[in-house]
Design a protein around this nucleic acid. Structure first.
Lengths: 120, 120
DNA sequence: CAGCATCCACCCCGATACTG
DNA sequence: CAGTATCGGGGTGGATGCTG
């Protein structure tokens, strides 16, 4: 958050990429996005289970940041035991969609070998 | 590099996003990509000038990693004084293209305010 | 159940100086 | 010009334990 010293290109147009990179710049954020897209409205514990290896601290802090960034919505039903549901906002959904070509690129490179890329 | 312990979703489909994230996961990599796209075939010093704030060490290491990842091509003409030219590979160009929707998302959020995102 | 508090290790990045 | 060598700081994320 807090728009720290972002790098920029010489001609000043930072092209919006870095804005996006800040929002998804976290070890697990794209996975959280993805999880919330495929399994909408997830509870904390469910997300934790969906993302093997993540710790509660990190999951919590990432969720808070993503909420602050307006890509995740947090709904707390106050009951006992407590229940909180997380889902994507419209903006978060759009972000996730914008991630798809990147995912496709990644899939490509995993499955298909490089196509005549290596030089002599 | 070297495919360290990547996180994954519970159902195992890591959706390729993380593959891409590893390649662009560096403070300046997307900017390098962008610079090489707009100003193809750049020399080391030119790139440094194009990216105000980057240090030689970081530029060099990022360039080496991106070359190893097959997104940047390095051509060394051996003359004196030395001359080296960097450009995008096909894969790098595709990666850059795949980044465009993300850039658009970022631009959107900068210009337009949030559109009815905030809940009650 | 849904977190927070604390401590810490690691790694990335930046600054500076030097080399072929 | 095009890098490499070395050192150091900062921030992220991981482990563990506790709370409403």
């Amino acid at each position: 958050m807090a728009t720290v010293n972002r790098p920029g290109t010489a001609d000043g147009h930072a092209c919006g990429i870095d804005t996006a990179m800040e929002v998804i710049g976290g070890r697990w954020k794209v996975l959280i996005l993805w999880a919330l897209h495929e399994y909408p409205s997830r509870r904390f514990g469910e997300l934790r289970r969906l993302l093997p290896g993540i710790t509660e601290k990190v999951l919590a802090s990432h969720l808070r940041e993503m909420e602050a960034d307006g890509v995740v919505r947090r709904v707390s039903h106050d009951e006992v035991p407590p229940r909180v549901e997380y889902s994507l906002t419209e903006d978060g959904t759009r972000l996730n969609d914008a991630l798809e070509p990147l995912a496709a690129w990644g899939r490509d490179r995993s499955t298909g070998p490089r196509l005549g890329e290596e030089p002599s």
